[in-house]
């Protein structure tokens, strides 16, 4: 294959993929940007300037949605800590660790719909959680889990953790296994104890993995919670457990406010771009 020919083969290999991406990602994205400045029911749209954005800022939905997203965001360090601890323990390679590793990842392969409805069925009023509490003599702690906002968030976050533990464990384990044994032996000879080895060798060499895991899950809590929210709370009561991505679905496909939903999409788009920008900044620093 000559150089000139190679150039054409290269460009033609890209053509179908880029053509379809342009039609089904590029065009709709610009369309969303355009319609965020309109009132739009899907058929006719009228230009309204910044009205949608003004409504988002003034109708009280935004603080609520941001609060909901913030609650999920604040739950990310928790699962980071749990996954790190579990992988450090797994790395001790006690009997059965391979089986445990497989078991931890199993919930991650299931649909959010399965996870969500399963959790919902366990937390109903006469469900297994309340029954267990009563049988354990903890009847005072039984509550209507699915009907108060704090417990609803607790269930959503529990499901998020349940889905994510396996992913974190696998990522951190692969990071741990790449630490050289010489480094460990040298530290042992120098008299470093287990805690010091953890703080000065293990954690620092896991920085890239920790960073990757955090970014992936920070983005996930903004764009990936649809299935869990749909199946557990449906965003309610009111919009009390509705994050931004679920609100876009409600506004566009239940209420028909497509212009408003477009403006929300633009908003979410910039949030995700901002997170990605931070990711690029930090990963450049990590490389140095």
């Amino acid at each position: 294959m000559g150089l000139k020919q190679e150039r054409w083969v290269g460009l033609f290999s890209l053509l179908p993929a880029f053509l379809l991406l342009a039609v089904f990602v590029g065009y709709p994205m610009f369309n969303t940007f355009f319609h965020s400045f309109t009132e739009w029911d899907g058929v006719t749209s009228t230009y309204v300037g910044w009205d949608n954005f003004k409504t988002i800022l003034s109708n009280g939905d935004l603080p609520l949605m941001l609060r909901n997203n913030l609650i999920f965001l604040l739950s990310v360090p928790g699962i980071l800590f749990i996954s790190l601890t579990v992988s450090v323990l797994l790395h001790e390679e006690v009997p059965g660790w391979r089986l445990f590793r497989s078991v931890y990842y199993l919930p991650a392969i299931l649909s959010s719909v399965v996870i969500g409805f399963l959790a919902k069925s366990m937390f109903t009023n006469k469900g297994i959680v309340n029954t267990l509490l009563e049988n354990a003599g903890l009847g005072a702690f039984t509550t209507d889990w699915l009907n108060t906002v704090p417990t609803e968030f607790m269930i959503l976050i529990l499901c998020f953790y349940w889905q994510t533990l396996g992913q974190g464990t696998l990522i951190f384990l692969s990071g741990l296994s790449s630490i050289s044994n010489e480094l460990f032996d040298a530290a042992k000879i120098d008299g470093a104890n287990w805690r010091q080895r953890l703080m000065y060798i293990v954690i620092p060499s896991l920085y890239p993995a920790i960073f990757y895991f955090t970014i992936v899950n920070v983005i996930y809590v903004f764009v990936g919670l649809f299935g869990l929210v749909y199946s557990i709370t449906g965003g309610g009561p009111g919009y009390e457990t509705t994050p931004i991505d679920y609100m876009i679905y409600i506004q566009a496909f239940r209420s028909g406010n497509m212009g408003y939903a477009s403006a929300l999409s633009v908003f979410l788009f910039f949030i995700v771009m901002f997170i990605t920008w931070i990711q690029l900044k930090i990963s450049k620093r990590l490389e140095q």
Partner: peptide, 24 residues
Amino acid sequence: GFYIIMIATMTIPGITFIIPNYLL
């Protein structure tokens, strides 16, 4: 250049283009 465009596309959240796609 094309590769960077392709990778950048990966970061666009799917929900931001679902409405026009549905209407299309």
